[in-house]
Deep mutational scan, measured.
Amino acid sequence: HTVDVQGVTYHFDNPEEARKFAEEMAKRLGLQVHVKDGRYKVE
């Protein structure tokens, strides 16, 4: 499970961890979480 944050890619084994990380980063950076091709993108 992959999370892209402003061009940096993070990998997680656990989909729940990936989702939480994406939401946390989006909140911290004031950005949105998009799901695209099964990847989380924070932009």
Rank of each mutant, 00 (worst) to 15 (best):
H1C: 14
H1M: 12
H1F: 12
H1S: 12
H1R: 10
H1V: 08
H1A: 13
T2Y: 15
T2S: 12
T2I: 15
T2V: 15
T2F: 15
T2R: 09
T2M: 14
T2K: 12
V3L: 01
V3E: 00
V3W: 00
V3N: 00
V3M: 01
V3Y: 00
V3T: 03
D4T: 07
D4S: 07
D4H: 06
D4K: 05
D4Q: 08
D4N: 06
D4W: 13
V5T: 04
V5H: 04
V5M: 05
V5S: 04
V5P: 00
V5N: 02
V5Y: 04
V5C: 13
V5R: 01
V5K: 01
Q6Y: 09
Q6S: 08
Q6M: 14
Q6N: 08
Q6W: 08
Q6R: 09
Q6D: 07
G7H: 06
G7M: 05
G7V: 02
G7W: 05
G7P: 01
G7R: 05
G7L: 04
G7Y: 05
G7S: 06
G7F: 05
G7A: 05
G7N: 07
V8T: 12
V8I: 12
V8N: 09
V8R: 13
V8H: 10
V8Q: 12
V8S: 09
V8A: 10
V8G: 05
V8L: 11
V8F: 12
T9H: 09
T9C: 14
T9A: 09
T9W: 09
T9P: 08
T9Q: 09
T9D: 05
Y10N: 02
Y10F: 11
Y10P: 00
Y10T: 04
Y10D: 00
Y10C: 06
Y10Q: 02
Y10H: 06
Y10K: 03
Y10V: 05
Y10I: 04
Y10W: 09
Y10L: 04
Y10G: 00
H11Q: 11
H11S: 12
H11M: 13
F12M: 03
F12K: 02
F12A: 01
F12D: 00
F12C: 07
F12Q: 00
F12G: 00
F12H: 02
F12V: 02
F12N: 00
F12Y: 05
F12R: 01
D13K: 10
D13M: 10
D13Q: 11
D13A: 11
D13L: 10
D13P: 10
D13T: 12
D13R: 09
D13H: 10
N14T: 13
N14H: 12
N14L: 10
N14Q: 10
N14G: 11
N14C: 14
P15H: 12
P15W: 06
P15M: 11
P15K: 13
P15A: 12
P15Y: 05
P15C: 12
P15E: 14
P15L: 08
P15G: 14
P15S: 13
E16T: 11
E16A: 10
E16L: 11
E16I: 12
E16Q: 11
E16C: 07
E16F: 11
E16N: 11
E16G: 10
E17W: 07
E17T: 12
E17L: 10
E17V: 09
E17G: 09
E17H: 10
E17F: 08
E17Y: 08
E17D: 12
E17R: 09
E17C: 14
E17A: 12
A18I: 01
A18H: 00
A18E: 00
A18T: 04
A18L: 02
A18R: 02
A18P: 01
A18V: 02
R19I: 06
R19A: 07
R19C: 10
R19T: 05
R19H: 06
R19L: 11
R19Y: 08
R19N: 04
R19S: 06
R19M: 08
K20N: 12
K20R: 13
K20L: 13
K20Y: 11
K20V: 12
K20E: 12
K20A: 13
F21R: 01
F21S: 01
F21E: 01
F21Y: 07
F21T: 02
F21I: 02
F21D: 00
F21Q: 02
F21N: 01
F21P: 00
F21M: 04
F21L: 03
A22S: 04
A22N: 00
A22Y: 00
A22E: 00
A22Q: 00
A22C: 05
A22R: 00
A22F: 01
E23P: 00
E23M: 14
E23D: 09
E23S: 08
E23C: 15
E23T: 11
E23F: 15
E23I: 14
E23K: 07
E24A: 13
E24D: 12
E24I: 11
E24Q: 11
E24N: 09
E24C: 15
E24Y: 14
E24V: 10
E24M: 14
M25H: 06
M25D: 01
M25A: 10
M25K: 06
M25V: 08
M25E: 13
M25Y: 06
M25N: 06
A26G: 06
A26N: 01
A26R: 02
A26C: 04
A26H: 01
A26K: 01
A26L: 01
A26P: 00
A26Y: 01
A26M: 02
A26S: 04
A26V: 01
A26I: 01
A26W: 02
K27M: 13
K27Y: 10
K27F: 13
K27R: 14
K27A: 13
K27N: 08
K27E: 10
K27H: 10
K27C: 14
K27P: 01
R28L: 13
R28Q: 10
R28H: 07
R28N: 07
R28W: 07
R28C: 14
R28I: 11
R28A: 11
R28P: 02
R28G: 05
R28Y: 08
R28M: 12
L29V: 02
L29S: 03
L29P: 01
L29R: 03
L29Q: 03
L29C: 07
L29G: 02
L29N: 03
L29D: 02
G30Y: 04
G30M: 05
G30V: 03
G30Q: 05
G30W: 03
G30N: 07
G30R: 06
G30F: 05
G30H: 06
G30E: 04
L31E: 02
L31A: 08
L31R: 03
L31K: 03
L31W: 09
L31M: 14
L31D: 01
Q32T: 14
Q32H: 14
Q32N: 07
Q32E: 09
Q32C: 14
Q32W: 07
Q32V: 15
Q32G: 06
Q32K: 14
Q32R: 12
Q32Y: 10
Q32M: 10
Q32L: 08
V33H: 02
V33T: 03
V33Y: 05
V33P: 02
V33S: 03
V33R: 01
V33C: 08
H34P: 01
H34L: 09
H34N: 09
H34G: 05
H34T: 15
H34A: 08
H34D: 05
H34R: 10
V35K: 06
V35Q: 07
V35M: 12
V35F: 15
V35R: 05
V35H: 08
V35T: 06
V35E: 12
V35I: 12
V35P: 02
V35W: 15
V35N: 05
K36D: 13
K36Q: 13
K36R: 10
K36C: 13
K36E: 15
K36I: 15
K36A: 10
K36T: 12
K36N: 08
K36S: 13
D37I: 02
D37A: 05
D37E: 06
D37Q: 05
D37Y: 04
D37T: 03
D37V: 03
G38N: 07
G38M: 04
G38P: 02
G38D: 06
G38R: 05
G38Y: 03
G38Q: 04
G38E: 04
G38I: 02
G38F: 04
G38W: 03
G38A: 03
R39H: 15
R39S: 14
R39E: 15
R39L: 12
R39M: 15
R39P: 02
R39V: 15
R39C: 15
R39A: 15
R39N: 15
Y40V: 06
Y40D: 03
Y40G: 03
Y40F: 11
Y40H: 04
Y40C: 08
Y40K: 03
Y40N: 03
Y40A: 04
Y40Q: 03
K41H: 15
K41T: 15
K41R: 13
K41M: 15
K41I: 15
K41E: 14
K41L: 15
K41N: 11
K41V: 15
K41Y: 15
V42G: 02
V42D: 03
V42N: 02
V42R: 01
V42P: 03
V42H: 02
V42S: 02
V42I: 06
V42T: 02
V42Y: 02
V42F: 03
E43I: 07
E43N: 07
E43G: 14
E43Y: 11
E43V: 08
E43S: 09
E43Q: 07
E43H: 07
E43L: 07
